[in-house]
């Protein structure tokens, strides 16, 4: 690991009104490694990811990108360098698959847009659906389009919140092999999922949260042992 981690989170807390969702969570993520975030319901996983995606401000604590703190002025700039995917699709139902990609490509101001879009459509098996409205695609296809959209801007940090939700067997498999391939592209990946089965073989690092606090952060144990560690740290709450 380098001297300065790619992404560092220092004592980030977030409270909603009087209830606190996160308390002094610290960890770091490196490029080329996948970090799996586990925790029972209400552990603050989604809040943490939204904070890392710079969509929610932390109540206290700082986030550093390559050693540089993300200050209020630069939030917008940093935001364009990350990709965020939640259970929501982030697609316009009334635009076609291609128009969706074109719109976001234009906003991100991506060079050689046309080629990139055609390439991504091919890669995600969307070529035959390019002019269909996104709202009329099947759920699996929508998820693929959503992933294609995510990769348009070639983000350095990928934040994935429950990406397996609503996927059929075939699409889950595709997504899993795709996530495995990400290591080669040298991206830092943060993944929240309650389907540990889907994710255990792609995890390099593991972060376990419970009731807003860090219970474990470090290298992920071999895939069979992840659940044991998880139960040990969270006193057996279901993931």
């Amino acid at each position: 690991m380098g001297a300065v981690p790619f992404l560092e989170v220092r004592e980030v807390s977030r409270s909603y009104g009087r209830a606190s969702a996160l308390e002094k969570v610290s960890f770091f993520a490196e490029k080329g490694r996948n970090t799996l975030v586990l925790g029972p319901n209400g552990a603050g996983k989604s809040t943490l990811l939204r904070i890392l995606a710079l969509l929610t401000r932390p109540s206290s604590g700082i986030i550093l990108w390559e050693g540089e703190p993300v200050c209020a002025k630069k939030r917008g700039e940093f935001r364009t360098r990350l990709g965020y995917l939640s259970h929501q699709l982030f697609l316009y139902n009334h635009l076609s698959a291609e128009e969706n990609l074109e719109f976001f490509a234009a906003l991100y101001d991506i060079p050689a847009r046309e080629q990139k879009i055609v390439g991504l459509m091919e890669q995600f098996g969307l070529a035959s659906h390019r002019s269909k409205l996104a709202g009329e695609l099947s759920r699996g296809m929508q998820q693929r389009l959503s992933l294609a959209r995510l990769f348009l801007s070639d983000p350095e940090l990928l934040i994935l919140d429950e990406p397996f939700t609503g996927l059929d067997e075939e699409s889950s498999e595709a997504l899993r092999s795709f996530l495995l391939s990400l290591r080669r592209f040298n991206k830092a990946v943060l993944l929240v999922t309650h389907e540990v089965r889907e994710a255990r073989e792609i995890a390099d690092d593991l972060l376990i949260l419970d009731r807003g606090r860090t219970r474990y952060f470090g290298e992920a144990p071999p895939s069979g042992k992840i659940m044991d560690l998880y139960h040990e740290k969270t006193e057996g709450s279901p993931p």
């Binding site: 917008g76 935001r79 990709g83 939640s86 976001f104």
Partner: peptide, 8 residues
């Protein structure tokens, strides 16, 4: 959210 992430 996608819009927010796409514009600086």
């Amino acid at each position: 959210q996608a819009l927010l992430l796409a514009v600086s």
